[in-house]
Amino acid sequence: MNSATDTATSPAAHSALIVADRISKSYMRGTERLQVLDALSIQIEEGEFVALMGPSGSGKTTLLNLIAGFDTADAGSLIVAGSNLSSLSENELSKWRLNHVGFVFQFYNLLPVLSAQENVALPLMLFGMSAKERNERARFSLEVVGLGDRVKHLPSELSGGQEQRVAIARAIVTDPKLIVADEPTGDLDRASAEEVLALLKRLNTEFKKTIVMVTHDPAAASHASRIVRLDKGKLVG
């Protein structure tokens, strides 16, 4: 489509990891159409750590879901890691997520029947890797997040902060360029939150991960390299 040429007019287009061009998203609530994102444009460069802030209901999660390929925009173009997400089929999108994004959410979303190591190794199953290699990589990821001594623990045997770190280990195990996080510290106490934030910061600086993090917490946002504010589906400030 011509959206590709539109973004090419932007000087940073060649290097931006995320290029959203006038994307819109609305939901039907009953018979009423609720415009959540309204022709929103944004670019995020590779290596950035962006904090997405704004009042409740402003569309932060909606935007993050579009960027992560969990959902597709109604209009506009969204190119992430070189792929035009709206042109991908359901299956292609699954595969794209597997290769390009790791996610961390407020609720840790670990599988309760699997140990920490097995949870982390889960996405690697889809790469056709040997069990041995999967386990090694999972263990390495867990060591990066400081849980090398908790590999055999079930989620129910871990603290909230530890569970969130397992989720982070799972997000990085496939070595994606992009990590999206939706209020990753929303359910944690101050100390655990600080650990998680420091970890994200380290992934950004040391491992060169691009991070987009939704947060309400100014202290959390202070770890970011850029703060983007959203209100009523539009960027502000």
Binding site: E90, N91, S94, R97, L98, N109, L111, L126, R170
Partner: peptide, 16 residues
Amino acid sequence: YREFSVLNALGFSQRH
């Protein structure tokens, strides 16, 4: 349901 959607988010396809 939630677990399935997490798997889906991780990259497991509908077929998986």
